[in-house]
Design a protein around this nucleic acid. Structure first.
Length: 114
DNA sequence: GACATGACATAAC
DNA sequence: CGTTATGCCATGT
């Protein structure tokens, strides 16, 4: 099936973790790495996402530390990510997202209605 | 194999 | 808010 071929175990674990991010929530590269059992390897999460093209992968739910979209503000990636997040109710402003509100914390509370 | 790059993170100043 | 340094390491040249 869709191209997990040539990926390391670590990379597969990363994708698996990303697939588990619930709709309407976001998390950071570093946190994905941690949850995948790869502390301090945020960069591997990034390079993996760059490499992999899986239509169903919720890549847009992965953002930078502090709640920032990491793409340059004028880039297509920035636009696409903002859009896809807004589509599922995440508030994105100037490329920033409130992690207190939309962050994926391991023990999950239901989404509060703002 | 050496060197550069990058969808990162954190700390320190 | 900004810059610099350091850790990290797969990928590309």
């Amino acid at each position: 099936m869709a191209s997990t071929t040539g990926l390391s175990d670590a990379q597969r674990r990363i994708l698996e973790t990303i697939r588990q991010i619930p709709r309407g929530r976001v998390t950071t590269y570093g946190r994905v790495a941690e949850r995948a059992g790869l502390p301090r390897r945020a960069r591997l999460v990034a390079s993996t996402l760059r490499r992999v093209d899986e239509p169903d992968l919720p890549w847009f739910r992965v953002i930078g530390a502090g709640g920032r979209i990491v793409f340059p503000p004028d880039s297509p990636g920035f636009q696409r990510q903002s859009e896809r997040l807004r589509t599922e109710g995440v508030i994105v402003e100037r490329g920033r997202i409130d992690l207190e509100r939309f962050g994926w914390n391991s023990s999950e509370l239901p989404l509060l209605d703002p």
